Amino acid sequence: MTGYARATGAVSGAAFTCEIKSVNSRGLDVRLRLAPGFDALESEIRQLIGKMISRGSITCNLSIERDGAGGHVLVNEQALATVLAVMSEMTGKIAASPPTLDGILGLKGVLEQRDKPMTAAAETALSTAIIEGVSQALVDLVLARRQEGGRIAAVLLERLQEIEDQIAQAEAHPARTREAILARLRQQVADLADDISIPEERLAQEALLLATKADIREELDRLTAHLTSAHQLIAGGGAVGRRLDFLAQEFNREANTLCSKSNAVELTAIGLDLKASIDQLREQVQNIE
C-alpha cells in the first residue's frame, strides 16, 4: 500500500525532519537514511516500523539542521601548509601577483566550519524528539494507508461480486445435466453414421460416465467457500493481504479445474471470464497490507 507522512520537531540547538514513504511490496522492506551521527537510532526506528506495518516497501529519511549561530570556524593547518608549500615552489616560475590572505583562505578545505557541540542532555533530548516524531509520522502513514485500503476494499468487493455471479452462471448452466449430455451423445453418434445402432441403455451408461467426469460440483462448492472466506477477511480488516493472496491462488486453481472439466463451449467461456475476474482480484490484493 502506498502512503506518505512527514513530521518535524526541534530542541535547543537543532531541528529535524522525518519523512516516511510506503509503496507496494510482497513483504516488509525497510530502508533507513539517517543523518550522520544518528545510526544508534536505527534499531529503535526499525522496531517502531515493524510494530505498526507488516507489508510494504518503507523508506524513512531523517535530516538534521543544527543551530550554526554558535559554530566554530577552524583553519585546517595541514591543508594550509600544503597550499603554502605549492605557492613557495611556484614562486619565480609563474609571473603572477602574490596571493592575498582572503584568496588563500577561500581555497576549498583551508577553512572548516563546525557546528557548536551540543551538550549530552541536548543530544538525548534530540534523540527522544526524533523517536516521537517518527512515531507520529508512522501514525499518519498508517492512517493514509488505511484510507487507501478502504478504497481498494470497495474494488475487491466488486471483483468478488463478479466471481459470485459467474459461479451462479456455471451452477445454472444446462450443459451440466445428464440429460443434456445424453442428448449431445445421441447427436454425436447420429453424426458418425446413420446405420449405427447403440442400445438406449448403453447410451445412458455412457452419458452417466461423461456426466461424472464433467461434474464441477466440488469446484463450485470450493469457489463458494473461498468467496465466504474472502468476505470475512475484508470485513474483519487488519493485515489480510497475504491471506487474500493465498485465497486468490485457490480461486484460480478451482477455475482451472472447472475449465478442464467443461463439456460445453458456453461453460468454458464462463470459466475463462471467472479466471479474468480472479486475476483482477489478485492484482488488487497485491496493493494491500
Score class of each variant (00 low, 15 high):
Gln249Glu: 02
Asn61Arg: 04
Asp279Thr: 10
Met1Cys: 06
Phe16Arg: 01
Gly103Ala: 11
Glu112Thr: 05
Leu244Phe: 12
Arg33Gln: 06
Leu62Gln: 07
Ile58Lys: 01
Arg55Pro: 00
Cys259Val: 09
Ser57His: 13
Lys213Ile: 03
Pro36Leu: 03
Asp39Glu: 11
Arg217Trp: 07
Leu157Tyr: 04
Thr224Lys: 15
Leu157Cys: 10
Leu267His: 10
Gly150Ala: 09
Thr82Ser: 15
Glu218Phe: 15
Val83Ile: 14
Ser88Asp: 15
Ile167Pro: 00
Val155Lys: 09
Thr228Ser: 14
Ile64His: 03
Gly149Asn: 05
Arg33Leu: 02
Leu107Ser: 04
Arg114Ser: 05
Ala144Val: 01
Ala168Val: 13
Asp191Cys: 07
Ala193Leu: 07
Glu179Leu: 14
Ala276Asn: 10
Leu107Lys: 07
Lys213Leu: 07
Arg66Asn: 01
Asp191Phe: 06
Pro117Leu: 04
Pro199Leu: 08
Ala125Gly: 08
Leu105Gln: 02
Lys93Ile: 06
Leu244Thr: 08
Thr224Val: 08
Arg253Gln: 11
Glu200Arg: 12
Arg184Tyr: 06
Gln205Glu: 15
Ala5Phe: 02
Ala15Thr: 10
Glu148Gln: 11
Thr224Leu: 12
Ser260His: 07
Ala120Arg: 08
Leu203Trp: 15
Ala95Trp: 03
Thr257Val: 12
Leu32Gly: 02
Ala14Gly: 02
Asp140Asn: 09
Thr91Ile: 05
Ile64Leu: 07
Ala144His: 00
Arg145Tyr: 10
Ser197Trp: 02
Gln78Val: 07
Arg151Val: 11
Leu156Trp: 11
Ala129Met: 13
Leu258Ser: 06
Pro99Gln: 04
Ala190Val: 10
Val142Ile: 07
Gly106Ala: 09
Val134Glu: 00
Ala225Ser: 15
Glu283Thr: 05
Ile278Met: 02
Ala204Ile: 14
Leu281Met: 09
Gly13Arg: 03
Gly150Ser: 10
Leu84Cys: 10
Leu192Thr: 12
Leu258Glu: 13
Arg202Gly: 13
Leu267Val: 07
Ala79Lys: 13
Ala248Met: 12
Ala96Thr: 14
Glu65Asn: 04
Gln136Thr: 14
Ser229Asn: 13
His226Lys: 13
Gln286Thr: 03
Arg55Asn: 11
Asp191His: 13
Ser135Asp: 14
Leu185Lys: 07
Lys51Asp: 13
Ala10Arg: 09
Asp115Cys: 01
Phe246Glu: 04
Ala85Lys: 09
Ile45Trp: 01
Leu80Pro: 00
Ala120Cys: 02
Ala190Glu: 14
Gly271Phe: 06
Ile234Arg: 05
Leu32Pro: 00
Gln78Met: 03
Thr224Asp: 12
Ala269Phe: 09
Leu203His: 13
